[in-house]
Design a protein around this nucleic acid. Sequence first.
RNA 1: GGGCCUGUAGCUCAAUGGUUAGAGCAGAGCGCUCAUAACGCUUUGGUUGGGGGUUCAAGUCCCUCCGGGCCUACCA
Length: 570
Amino acid sequence: MARHLITSAIPYINGIKHLGNLVGSQLPADLYARYLRGRGHEVLFLCATDEHGTPAELAAAKAKMPVAEYCAEMHGVQAEIAKGFRLSFDHFGRSSSARNHKLTQHFAGRLHEAGLIREVSEKQMYSHADGRFLPDRYIEGTCPNCGFDSARGDQCDNCTKQLDPVDLINPHSTISGSTDLEMRETKHLYLRQSTLKDQLEAWIDSKKDWPILTTSIAKKWLNDGDGLQDRGITRDLDWGIPVRDGEKDWPGMEGKVFYVWFDAPIEYIACSQEWVDAGKGDNWERWWRTDKGAEDVTYTQFMGKDNVPFHTLSFPATILGSGEPWKLVDYIKSFNYLNYDGGQFSTSRGRGVFMDQALEILPADYWRWWLLSHAPESSDSEFTWDNFQASVNKDLADVLGNFVSRITKFCRSKFGEVVPEGGAYGEQEEALIADLAARVAAYQGTMDAMEVRKSSAELRAIWVAGNEYLQSAAPWSTFKEDPEKAAMQVRLGLGLIRLYAVLSAPFIPDASATMLKAMNAEGAGWPDDVAGFLAGLAAGHAFTVPDVLFAKITDEQREDWQTRFAGVRT
RNA sequence: GGGCCUGUAGCUCAAUGGUUAGAGCAGAGCGCUCAUAACGCUUUGGUUGGGGGUUCAAGUCCCUCCGGGCCUACCA
């Protein structure tokens, strides 16, 4: 038994996430966590909400709520939806927790002590009407290069030229529209990542098996231009973790907070402390401190490609720079984006299907199966309603659901709701079992490697093998001349349901639970030995015929949803 | 502009430089009647975006052109 620490990139607090966010981090992380637990490993699976930064403050203002209250409410909403999708976090924490405050300040103090923090005085745009400094993206004006009138302070969306807010003609705040802007002097702390460049590069280079998406992004940041740049880790905001030098005040930094990307990954650690505080565990250090038992932990992170630089560079810089024996990540699984019907999912523009809406129209398993079997691993992938309907109906209703239905109903009509007795395996059964054993091994191989789409294909092939067997064994024919042989065939078929339930649990946990309950076989372990596992459902064992596992998506439903989700969410 | 990813059957995707480029879906045909009109078998379908090169051998490596996407450090 091994020990696995798994974290999903923490979703931003600002609003309900869409299916693209889900498939890029939380869902594959959950798949992996469930699989490893199923194999009998010890798993700590953590996620949290990422609560600081300008967008949270603005969203709270828009909702006319204090930002702390807004975040608390949204955390609750996101936690509920996560439950709805059966995301099996051991704890769902908050980056605004007292634990994270303390730990973030601790890391800052350690980095300061190690000489890895420098103070920089710089000028930033201040908006009098908004009463805040504005990030470059919140300033718009006319592009000096192409004349586009909605160019942002960092870049012109029209001609793609990199800009500085002072370059803009007639700059204004996108928050209030105010043109009453002023360049003000402000002081910030920078993390001297450049000092750690060689150390980080050697570490990245040692990771030969990471996805190319992960390492190529990291190397680009390490080597592009002048190499890895120091990064500002503080902001002039109200909502956030106050800048402190460990336990001490930080002279000159009063009223400032740490940058969200400095404190967010630290929440991975703080979350394990929250997990202990919540009474769910009793020792977080054996997961995080290599001097206190975490030496044998394998740590895997899941994230969308936009998060890669922070997880390959800044967070490791924080960890390494602290000089303390914190656990570093062992494997970073990153994903491309899921697009929606010819364009991007967009939280800000309300385009696509959001997690709450998805659960309103269909159970979690439908979404989990489609999203995971189409996970954007090698390139961006696309959600269309036609594809969703076709895939889900075929895979879940026809291949798996109908298999369960046909064998349980046949058994009920000929032998009653009990595993029938008699007969012995023949050549055909031995061949099936050998085939299944090979396929299960292949499935384990791809799951261990976190190859999500390939794993779904292997799993589906295992389901198909059941239908192939039934078709050629034809117990409905056998029953007429040799009821004992038919009993054996049906017994094996029923055993397959239990096998499928256990193997499929990481993908479709609810259906898996329904299958196990119907087979009266809750608590079945992993089928390390397929033949032995199948024999585990013995003659005389009572079961019930479950309700339809997966109802098909009708054309009417699909058309309705296509129309309903064609526009933008308001 | 720069960097990276990507382009393979109508669709979604596979293929350590090594048989005749494979699966699923969709289409066609046949079979089965236990089942959610489900299942199984067979089968049609390819100038691997274009062009050039390296190699005994290229979807794979190199050059070039074309298309799509992402990132480019103050959104997170």
